[in-house]
Each structure stands twice: as structure tokens, then as C-alpha cells.
């Protein structure tokens, strides 16, 4: 019998088809039902499908599902009931977004960044987000929100 591959998504263990070449994006959306991870280009050029894999921000359209075996994945659904998380709180405070299609990817990219690094400048945050496109032009508010969240997490971290 084939040994089953597994990964952990938002704290829940899921089985993976070891033969499938399915991109993680579609596995998450269609098989697991986590549809905050969005299809934007399927070419790794827009960032709207960004998720966190073992702490790193990755585009799920370019990740093959069987390659995440044994790994831990986070999607924007982790924030669904966590409106007190510094990032969510700051995005609401700055009303950082318009249509919101790009936002889950941006939230994941920035969560990975803030979880890893301290004392980032605005430019460093912006450069880390260059792989994530926003067409509504809400960039400035998004950067305001991430900076504020970074400040909140830094304060928490030094307590």
C-alpha cells in the first residue's frame, strides 16, 4: 500500500495525492475549499496566490502539491477569526485596500516577512512586496498598515 503523503494547512493535517502534478493553488481552492488563495495569473507573476510554506512566502500556482508533503502551510483563512492580529487590525485601521483581490496574497507575504524580521524600513517592506501586484492603487495604505503592524509586533516582541 502506498504510504500517504500529508501536509498541515492552517493547523489541520490533510492527505495529498502523491502522483498528482496539481498546483497547490488548485488543491487549496478546490480540494480543501480554502478560496482566499486566488488565481490571478497562474504564471507566478502577480502574487495573488501567495501562501506561507514553512514560514516562507510562496506562490501557490508555482508550487506542486506533492512537494509540500510534510510541510506546514498557512493561508489568509488563518485570519478569519483573528481580527485582533496586528496585520488584520492595521489593514482595517488604514482601510488598506479597494477591490481586495490581491489582499490575501499580500497579507501572507507580509506575515511571512514580519514573522521573520525586525526593524524593517518602509522601503524594505515595499521591496519585499514587489512580487505582489495591486491594480487599485491602494499600495500606500497597504504599506502604512504593514508598517503599523510591524511596529505593533516589534513592541510585543520587546516586552
Amino acid at each position: 500500500m502506498q504510504s500517504e503523503l500529508r501536509c498541515t494547512i492552517n493547523g489541520v493535517v490533510h492527505a495529498i495525492d502523491g502522483f498528482s502534478s496539481e498546483p497547490l493553488l488548485f488543491f487549496l481552492r478546490d480540494k480543501i475549499g480554502l478560496r482566499s488563495t486566488r488565481y490571478g495569473c497562474g504564471q507566478g507573476t502577480c502574487g495573488s496566490c501567495t501562501v506561507i510554506i514553512d514560514g516562507e512566502a510562496k506562490m501557490s500556482c508555482e508550487t506542486i502539491t506533492k512537494d509540500v508533503s510534510g510541510k506546514t502551510i498557512e493561508t489568509a483563512e488563518v485570519f478569519e477569526n483573528q481580527h485582533e492580529h496586528p496585520l488584520v487590525k492595521s489593514f482595517i485601521e488604514f482601510q488598506a485596500g479597494q477591490c481586495g483581490y490581491c489582499l490575501p496574497g499580500i497579507l501572507m507575504a507580509s506575515k511571512s516577512l514580519l514573522d521573520k524580521k525586525q526593524n524593517l524600513s518602509r522601503l524594505e517592506i515595499a521591496e519585499a512586496l514587489d512580487a505582489n501586484l495591486c491594480r487599485c492603487g491602494a499600495h500606500s495604505r497597504i504599506l502604512d498598515a504593514i508598517e503599523k503592524a510591524h511596529q505593533l509586533s516589534n513592541e510585543k516582541g520587546t516586552q
Partner: peptide, 20 residues
């Protein structure tokens, strides 16, 4: 008033793309 639909757009699946 905050945007009534912002949080769902950030963390949920409100788009026609997401209908199932």
C-alpha cells in the same frame, strides 16, 4: 464607518470566482 466588505475580501471568498 469601515468598509463593510473589506475583511471578507481579505480573508474570505466573496468573489464570483469563488462560487461553488
Amino acid at each position: 464607518i469601515d468598509r463593510v466588505d473589506l475583511v471578507e475580501r481579505m480573508t474570505g471568498a466573496p468573489f464570483v470566482h469563488d462560487m461553488i
